[in-house]
């Protein structure tokens, strides 16, 4: 009976997480378009529903009924496989992301995470790396020059930026003496890591922008020079798979920033709020930050992108490890 309940609990949590993740891009597209509008002194979507709230649904219906087009010269198997490979890793990542410690409901203690791995951080970075395969396969299978160029850029960009990203979290791991995200958050109960690791946070943030392929690092899908980059040839639901994956990566990177550098669900002592609310507040702040940056900055040139990755971020992240080590001794 006891184990039956435990398994039921896990399945239930899994279903809830999958449902939330599938629904999440719907409000996020609306919020992004609203933020874009207001930054440009427009209103954004206004006509479908109250303040355009139903606009994402209308978009979704449009995407569902669009022709599912596969180019003649495309590699059909890889072409259909690529969106799925791009979509699965963001879902897998959320297995290891905790949104709180635990709550007690009807006398049973429910932990607010699916799995507390002792190598949680490593798992997250590794699984997030798989998402690149989807992008590369999509570009390759489309058999179109724009798509191939886009995926080549993605390839180079991801390899360049995953290194400083990995290095920048080492400082956090050193402080917490653990790679489990729960332990990392617990170690920040007194002092958030942003105070001791500002350099690490900066490197993580910039390389996170590049990993999510957001402006100013959205070269893989630079509209101006590549059409749409790796998903030029995609339409309908397959295209929306890439979009969902992109939004989930933004959410996951924001969650990671909150967990690693901003104390997870630990709030400021003066304002008493439930821990989960604290976590969600910080999460939404960072999602908003991503969108704010998107509509402020222009895109970097390709050589600038590379030199930022290798000449600025990589030395900075190494210096961060060195400084953290010296201070810990």
């Amino acid at each position: 009976m006891e184990s039956f309940l435990a398994i039921g609990l896990i399945v239930g949590k899994l279903a809830v997480v999958i449902a939330i993740l599938l629904i999440l891009p719907i409000p996020l597209t609306w919020i992004e378009r609203k933020i874009a509008g207001h930054i440009q002194q427009r209103l954004g979507p206004m006509r479908v529903g109250w303040h355009g709230l139903l606009q994402p649904l209308a978009d979704g219906i449009k995407l569902l009924f669009k022709e599912d087009h596969i180019p003649v010269e495309a590699d059909r198997f890889l072409f259909t496989l690529a969106p799925i490979i791009a979509l699965v890793p963001p879902f897998l990542v959320f297995v290891a992301i905790p949104i709180g410690d635990s709550i007690t409901l009807f006398g049973t203690e429910i932990t607010l995470y699916l799995a507390d791995m002792n190598v949680g951080l490593l798992y997250i970075l590794a699984v997030a790396g798989i998402e690149v395969y989807g992008v590369i396969l999509a570009g390759w299978a489309s058999n179109s020059k724009y798509a191939v160029l886009g995926s080549l850029r993605t390839c180079a960009q991801m390899i360049s930026y995953e290194i400083p990203m990995g290095f920048s979290v080492i400082g956090v791991v050193m402080l917490a003496q653990s790679m489990s995200l729960l332990d990392i958050v617990e170690s920040q109960a007194g002092l958030w890591n942003i105070v001791t690791q500002p350099l690490g946070f900066f490197v993580f943030f910039v390389s996170g922008l590049a990993e999510a392929q957001r402006i100013p690092f959205d070269l893989p899908e630079a509209e101006g020079d590549l059409g749409a980059g790796y998903h030029t040839e995609y339409s309908g639901m397959r295209f929306s798979f890439f979009m969902i994956s992109e939004y989930l990566i933004v959410v996951f990177l924001s969650a990671l920033m909150v967990l690693l550098f901003f104390g997870g669900w630990h709030g400021i002592a003066m304002i008493p709020l439930p821990p989960v609310v604290w976590f969600l507040l910080k999460l939404s702040f960072f999602i908003w930050m991503f969108m704010w940056l998107r509509f402020t900055f222009p895109r970097y040139r390709y050589d600038q992108l590379m030199s930022i990755g290798w000449k600025v971020l990589l030395p900075l992240s190494l210096a961060n490890i060195l400084i953290s080590g010296v201070f810990m001794l």
Binding site: G37, I39, Q41, R42, L43, M46, W292, L293, T296
Partner: peptide, 24 residues
């Protein structure tokens, strides 16, 4: 300079919109 740009867009985000809601 980046912060300058960010503060400008932030001030725009909370300023009034100029959209003329024609024909609604």
């Amino acid at each position: 300079d980046l912060l300058d740009g960010l503060s400008l867009t932030l001030s725009y985000m909370f300023s009034k919109t100029v959209t003329e809601r024609y024909p609604d």
